[in-house]
Design a protein around this nucleic acid. Structure first.
Lengths: 340, 340
DNA sequence: CTGAAAGCGCTTACAG
DNA sequence: CTGAAAGCGCTTACAG
């Protein structure tokens, strides 16, 4: 007679003729049972096709072995590379991940946080966005660790892992200058974004200044990290400042928008215009010409964030912030210019 | 004196001077308490900052309000569009989603299934891959519903939602024929893939046959749904069959590979060569020229799958299979050819 | 080495 | 309308 319900520890105990305490012990590889008992229990587990119930376990252990990941939809490829890294690390350390698409909508974030709390996740990874005080507060109340990826925060208890955006941007522009460019425009991300918006603009400005190139405000146009921002930005530049020889785009998607607009207006890349992107997302290799870009190690960032979080869960000690290395991957969109 | 632990139903009961049963009742909007009691309880909830514990609730209800989603990494954009749809629907119906990246690795799938079982998910969505008998078996044992997206199965208890791949492919090729092309090559997906591989090839073959175009085996090359498959496939075609005037690629990524290879060899799209992709992923709008492609409503497919799954969870009755409509979105990669 | 019992935070008959 | 009690499937002192 097959049981209609899935086997529980009780069924195993009965079949093995031991107490549930003993079953629990062998299940958890504790000590305190003879080898013979172990045999009996193992056999009963096989026979009953027993599977532990993580919910019951979680209730008593106050550990669910699951973490929550909050990420905005923005620039999907970007997010999913990070998510991939998180998932990889988590899974190999016996954690599951609940994903929450905040979709750049604040009220949703709060709701998700609520759910994660009720579901008793052991920790949270927060991606690509500023950790607003209101979010920080509720997370505090949850008494679980959080780590930020591709974002940063002023909270000592919330470590982050990210690239040095300012520096990366500085390097990209310096790279362009090294190729002989002086009339370099930038299409930024969202203007007010304090993480990936402003710092990258600052890096651009500083690189110009350090190389004695006066800043021309026509050369800076604000985008939104997306394709259309790049497209429109490029058209604006073409109109207001056609003398520009290079464009630095704040994301690869933006750069692809530039590429499209350039093609539409008969501007040849890299012959007439050089272009550098940012992210080195899979896209960057697939365009024609292939995109020279600033690489962020997205997958690794996800892994590192997961590692930090899990370490915080286990030890209770706050992890260090971590700046991960960026680099410029050279492909086909940058040309050299002779001195003029 | 602040409690060191988060408030439980017990704390609320004490503060409101009622039993935990009563608290539970108002929490769940049941009947059986005076308005006055309700007031007291609500107040106590506020004061204690009580949050329900979904784990405890799940243990007794045998419902966790979470579903598991299995998806391979292949063609990330594709997967994340579907995931987005699932997430959207799930969240608005009070379900959380645990994502499992199977990464085209079988043993991993089994392990994930195990985890999902232990975590007592209420249902599973399985994406883009064949549901192998061994997987089906363990899912059966879990006694929870499954639905397939962008895949199909012979199991009556496992509904799927997908596009009619055969038909979509047939339509794409017919479209090319309608534009005057007769020497049409195809770069397929993974050759043996029974879902997105073979049926699309069959559709190609049938469209050719129906229009009296003899099939030339040089015109069919197998790729892998990825960029490099398209790139290499295009080079192969250029070499073996340079007379080809159109290529049908089994995925947008593949099509971008074709675009790159074409550019590399000086073949102009659409002037020298027409190209149709498959998926209509965000990528397709970002290439130069923008890709004409077969659109799969990925986001909607995710939503529909989630809807079916949740309905199955609630009602216990198996949902119907669903073929969702595809269409051809015309952009810039197809040119017309005069009769010859 | 082993088991009886308490308890994790809830829900739900059952009585009153 | 309200509460005491049993129970969901586990783990973990505590005794022996």
């Amino acid at each position: 007679m097959k049981p209609t319900h899935s086997a529980t520890i009780k069924d195993v105990a009965k079949k093995a003729k031991v107490s549930i305490a003993t079953v629990s012990r062998v299940l958890n590889n504790l000590t305190g049972y003879s080898d013979k008992t172990r045999q009996k229990v193992m056999e009963a587990i096989k026979e009953t096709n027993y599977q532990p119930n993580a919910i019951a376990r979680g209730l008593i252990n106050k550990r669910t072995q699951t973490i929550g990941v909050l990420l905005p939809k923005v620039s999907v490829q970007f997010s999913s590379d990070i998510l991939q890294g998180i998932g990889e690390y988590a899974q190999s350390h016996d954690y599951s991940v609940i994903v929450c698409n905040t979709d750049a909508d604040g009220s949703r974030t709060l709701k998700y946080l609520q759910v994660l709390r009720e579901k008793q996740v052991d920790g949270i990874i927060y991606t690509s966005e500023v950790l607003k005080p209101e979010y920080y507060e509720v997370i505090q109340a949850m008494k679980i660790p959080v780590v930020l990826v591709a974002s940063e925060s002023p909270y000592a208890s919330v470590p982050y892992v990210k690239v040095n955006d300012w520096q990366a941007s500085y390097d990209a522009v310096t790279y362009l200058i090294g190729k002989g460019h002086r009339r370099i425009a930038m299409i930024s991300g969202t203007e007010k974004d304090p993480i990936a918006g402003r710092p990258r603009v600052q890096g651009y400005l500083k690189a110009l200044a350090d190389h004695g190139i006066p800043f021309d405000s026509k050369y800076l146009v604000h985008g939104n990290f997306l394709f259309d921002g790049g497209y429109r930005g490029m058209e604006e530049i073409l109109q207001k400042a056609p003398e520009v020889t290079a464009v630095f785009a704040a994301s690869d998607e933006t750069a692809l928008g530039v590429l499209s607009a350039a093609a539409k207006h008969g501007v040849k890349v890299p012959q007439d215009l050089s272009l550098v992107g940012y992210d080195n997302v899979k896209l960057a290799q697939m365009s024609v010409p292939a995109l020279t870009t600033v690489q962020q190690p997205l997958f690794a960032m996800g892994q590192v964030a997961a590692a930090k979080l899990i370490s915080m869960i286990m030890t209770g000690v706050v992890a260090e912030n971590q700046l991960v290395p960026h680099s410029i991957v050279e492909r086909e969109t940058v040309g050299t210019i002779g001195n003029d």
